[in-house]
């Protein structure tokens, strides 16, 4: 599925919810199900700055696709992180870099989450794009040699 198809799927899921409780139950459930990160990746370097709870992000390349893994101490944030992974992980650097993430707005999550917390998510997206850019350069170099 393309990044936008995944986003649309998430938006459709959220349209089914009647109230905040259903929404948060779903997000919390995602958080609980997310495998999380191996302790070796929970390093200072992998911490996303700007979050109230600690969020770790780790990335690696599989073929020409960027794989993201992440974890958080707080379960709701972990659920949100899980959605970001679902949308952005497993795509090429170009696909990630050219993405407009509209699902956060469309699911109403930005209004449900106070500014400070969405800022934390924004830093996470920024970091994911930074990884994509790094891998793009790496792949281009490999292709040249």
């Amino acid at each position: 599925m393309s990044i936008n198809e995944i986003q649309d799927e998430i938006i459709e899921t959220f349209e089914l919810f009647d109230d905040w409780e259903e929404k948060y139950e779903y997000i919390i459930d995602l958080g609980k199900k997310l495998a999380g990160l191996d302790d070796q990746y929970k390093t200072e370097d992998n911490i996303i700055k700007g979050c109230q709870s600690v969020v770790w992000l780790h990335a690696h390349l599989e073929g020409d696709k960027v794989i993201f893994e992440a974890d958080s101490q707080a379960i709701i944030v972990k659920g949100l992180v899980s959605m970001l992974l679902k949308v952005l992980s497993g795509h090429t650097p170009d696909e990630i870099l050219n993405t407009d993430l509209y699902f956060i707005e469309k699911t109403g999550l930005s209004s449900h989450l106070a500014q400070t917390r969405s800022n934390g998510l924004a830093s996470m997206v920024k970091q994911m794009k930074a990884y994509a850019l790094g891998y793009k350069t790496l792949l281009e170099k490999q292709n040249q040699s």
Partner: peptide, 21 residues
């Protein structure tokens, strides 16, 4: 077993303003 931030978010949904962090 519950992070303060999660407490704050769920309370906020119920109109209760506390500080977490």
């Amino acid at each position: 077993n519950i992070h303060p931030q999660d407490i704050g978010i769920i309370l906020d949904q119920q109109g209760i303003a506390v500080r977490t962090g």
